[in-house]
Structures are given as structure tokens and as C-alpha cells.
Amino acid sequence: MRFKIKRKGSAENNNNINMRKFIIYLLTFSLGLIIGLLFSKCPTTEEQKIDITLKEKTLRKEEKFHKESHTLQENVPQTYPEKEKEIEEKIYIKKETYEIPTTKVYYEKIACPDLPISAELLDKPDQYSNKKEAIFKIKLKINTKCSLEGFPIPCTFTAERVKVEFQEDGEKEFKVSYGEPPCMKDLISYNFIVDTTPPETKIIPVGFDKVVTTYHSVIFEFATNEPVKSILCKIDDGFWIDCSSGRIFPTNIEEGWHKLFVFSTDLAGNKEDPPKEYAFLIDALPPTTLLLSAPPSITNSRSAEFVFTSDDEEAKFECKINDKEWEKCSSPLILKDLQEGINKIKIRSFDKYGRYEDEPVIYSWRVVSGEIKVIPNPTTKNYEEVLKRQKRYKKE
């Protein structure tokens, strides 16, 4: 007969052993979890290097920002090179961000003293000057009070005289300032133009070139190479008249050659010298024929001589004898084998423009046989007038 002997407390021991194992496992798991969490929060060696690199670059950029800035600024978002962009992407993949701190930089403004000082320009050149030098007279005005032994006395400041010479023409600027940058203040600023060159005027005939063949009036226009104060003009020996409008329309001009004179004065007072000239011819009328010599009204000569001229030296002539046709002729004209009885001659002139005079010169005389009293040849009384007309058509 076998008997089983049960030891007291054996079941309780087993339970205690199992409980201890469970607690050990639980502590081990908890410790591993805590260690894992701690290691996940701490940056790796590579991440520490990235963090240090970004901080160093940030500090260098902030130092450069402090050196170059002169006004109140806020840092703008930083731009990184390509390598920095890759690092930044890696950080964001790990859901870790690095923030660059935003800073404000304040710079102290330089306080410029506001002195009670001003200036007055007493003498200065004209706005347009034709001199190679300029003289300025400046008077400083300072709001000060003077006293002597407690009693006020007048305070006066003498004016300064400044002379400046110029090597070339052009726009100039005169300034009076006090102080040093950045606190310099302008008291006087005066702009003027130095112009020592006289203007040039161009004469422009309107509708003709040298010769006017239609009217006893002309039109001229004037152009200058710079703004001018005035333009004066005259024809021949007439009076100078104002032509500043840039256009002149003289009328009732006599036949013949004439001269137009014109000069201008610019804004600086430079006068054009000598004046510009333009010669032109008024030839609006056809030529006129004048008979200077002819046979007597009654003659027994079968020949005759005619001398004639025109107020236009360049004119040509045509003659018609009795019932013949018009033919070209010239002075003196000698006719022979004339018939007895009344003979007639017509003479007309025409110019280079093909214009004929309105009425030709007509002369009649009788050829008879036998002896007759001597009759003087007719002469033209206005011969001198013809010479005057011819002189007007001569270009000097």
C-alpha cells in the first residue's frame, strides 16, 4: 500500500514563483520601453551635426545682416543652397523641424542739429548768360542775439563774394550748403545756362527760289538753331523791323533785284553778326520795248534804221514789217528796198519765261521820191528811265 505525502505550502510556492516572473517581465518591458522612448527623443550623431551646421550658418547670416543693414528690418525667410535643402527635407521626413528665430534689429538714427541758419543770394548771373564767368554775392542769415555787458547790440554779417570761371558752355548749378554728410543741408540752389555762342538764322523763301514771277509780294520764313529773344529783318536799305514771329510778308515790292537781311539775338544776349542775306528778283511783269531811234516820218530813202531796247536786258525781240509775219530781230535793225508810200513796223519783246508785252511798239513812215526838207530822226524822251529799269534788273 502506497501513500502520497503532500508537503505543506507547495502550491503557494508555485504561485509566488509565477508572480515574480510576471513582475520581472513587466519591469523589463517597461524599462525597454522607457529606454526606447529616451533614445528616440535624443538626436543621433548625424542629426546633431546637421543641427550645429544650421546654427552656425544662421549665426553667420545674422552677423552679415547686422553689418549691412542701416535701417530697421525684419529677417526675411532664409534661402539655402541645394545641400541645405536636402538636409531640410531629411529633417521633415523624421517629423522634426528646426525653426530659425526671427529677430528685429534697431539702429539709432543720427540726430542732425537744426541750426537757425539761412542764406540769401544777392547777386547772381542771369538765367541765360553769355559770359565765361559768373559772380555770386551771398549773405548768411543767422538768428542770433549779440550783447555787450548785458546790453543788446546789432549783429551784422558781411556778404561773401564768389567769382567762378567756366571753360565751356552748358547748364550750371550753384549751391550753398553747410554741414557734413549725412547732415548736410542746402541753403541755396540756383541753376543757369552759360551760352557764349551767337545763334544762326536760316532764311526760307516760301513758294519760290530766287525769282518771283507772279506777284509783287513775297513770303519768307525764319528758323534758328536755338531759342532766341528777337529776330530783326529789313529789305534793301529799309528800316529794321521786328520779325520775331518767324515770318514776313512784304508787298508792293518794285521790279528788280532786292536783298533781305536778317539777324537774331538769343536768350543770353548773343547777337548774330554779320546778318544773313538773301538776294531775290521780282519779275512779275512782261518786258517793255522802247524805240530809241527811227527814220523821219517822211523820207526819200529806201532804207531805214531802227534802234530799240527793253527794260529787261535778257529780253528778246520780234519784228513785223508791213504785211509780213512776225520774225525774230535785234537792235539795230536795218531795212532796205522799201516801197514808196507808207511803211509800218511793229516791235515786241518777250522774256525767258515766254511772256510777251501786252502792246507792241508801232511806227509808220512815208517813203517819197524827190527832194524834201531834212526832218530830224525821232528820239525817245524816256531813255534815262529805260536805263534805270535795266539797272534794277542787274544783280549786284
Rank of each mutant, 00 (worst) to 15 (best):
Q73F: 05
E254W: 03
D209Q: 11
T201K: 02
P275E: 10
C319Y: 01
D358N: 07
R7M: 13
E56I: 13
E86G: 06
K67E: 14
S40Q: 14
P227V: 10
K346F: 15
E226I: 03
N18A: 11
E68M: 11
Q390Y: 05
V164W: 01
N13V: 08
S310C: 13
T44P: 00
E385M: 10
C155E: 05
C155S: 09
F192W: 08
Y215N: 13
I100S: 06
P205W: 03
Y363W: 07
T97C: 00
E88F: 12
K137E: 13
R389C: 06
T97H: 04
D51V: 03
S69M: 08
S69P: 00
S230K: 08
K8L: 14
K373N: 15
I235H: 02
S364F: 06
K324F: 14
K381Y: 12
L285R: 06
T299N: 07
S10D: 14
S301Y: 11
T196A: 01
I204Q: 13
K373C: 11
Y128D: 09
N252S: 14
Y356D: 06
P250S: 06
L232E: 14
K55L: 12
K320D: 10
L72D: 08
H70P: 00
I334E: 10
K172V: 02
L37E: 10
S330H: 12
F263Y: 15
D195C: 04
Y393S: 09
V212Q: 14
I193R: 02
L31D: 03
T289D: 06
V211E: 14
V176D: 06
P286C: 02
N270I: 00
E160F: 08
F239M: 09
D169W: 00
D123R: 12
T102N: 08
I375T: 12
T45S: 13
T158Q: 13
L121C: 09
V374C: 02
V105Y: 05
F174T: 02
I375Q: 12
K139T: 01
S189I: 14
L26F: 12
S293A: 11
K90G: 06
L290D: 10
T197S: 10
V164R: 02
F249W: 09
T288H: 11
V176Q: 04
N16D: 12
F239Y: 08
F3N: 11
E318A: 08
N75H: 03
L281R: 01
L292K: 07
R302P: 00
V367Y: 05
V386H: 08
K391A: 15
Y215I: 05
F220I: 03
E277S: 10
E200D: 14
V162Y: 09
N75W: 01
P287Q: 10
N252A: 12
I50K: 11
L267E: 05
N14E: 15
K145G: 10
I100K: 07
T58Q: 11
